[in-house]
Design a protein around this nucleic acid. Sequence first.
DNA 1: CGCCTGTTTCGACGTCTATCTAAACACTGA
DNA 2: TCAGTGTTTAGATAGACGTCGAAACAGGCG
Lengths: 116, 116
Amino acid sequence: METTTTISPARQLPVLMTCCTPTSAVDDEAAESLAGMFKALADPARVKILSMLLNADEICACDVSAGIGKTAGTTSHHLKLLREAGLIAGDRRGTWIYYRVVPERLAAVRDALALG
Amino acid sequence: METTTTISPARQLPVLMTCCTPTSAVDDEAAESLAGMFKALADPARVKILSMLLNADEICACDVSAGIGKTAGTTSHHLKLLREAGLIAGDRRGTWIYYRVVPERLAAVRDALALG
DNA sequence: CGCCTGTTTCGACGTCTATCTAAACACTGA
DNA sequence: TCAGTGTTTAGATAGACGTCGAAACAGGCG
């Protein structure tokens, strides 16, 4: 066992970086939280939903099911996961529910991958 | 069933966008591929590994196990997943294997989340 | 060559996840 | 109020995933 790490401050970033220790970089809670956001995106159906939301400012939930080719129940399940991850938000207007992305939240995920 | 989507060209992006259809935005293969990259990041242990790699230019595989607090077998498993996703690359130099991130690949994931 | 250490693979186990059907809930409109 | 449509939840099932211990493999070193 030998530690042979090279520190590169220029590559450090605020989200995935905590300090300068070569071994452990993020604490357990941060890793868990970050992994949770990635997990919310780790499904083709949810990627499709997100891409629909990125192409249109907002979409009716009634269109999502057909858009991803899944049952209404399954679609509701995926929307719930994305909602719970804070990546999308929906509000009911009369009969239908309209969903839209939460840009700040999406930016947070993106920034975690920044290379400085 | 009624389609009530609003198109916003300014928000369209090259990765998650294919055309202007409000329902389906990315094809199945693209969604699958993108979801696969997110899945590779959808675990606290792998997030930690990536953050270690972002803080240091390269790290010895022998340090990863202690860094994430997992068995050698489990650590090898996670490194393999990250390697197969193309997010990290490792080369053997003598006794040890040194890993480093693949910036272009990481940037690809990041760009998929771009809001334009 | 044989030993040692680092790394990977294997087999197994428990948990989580995606998916469906069917039932329950929410809201609108007559 | 009731009927109809959109949405969510419940129950069930099949598959994927994380984890471990132990065995197998690989490369230095005496």
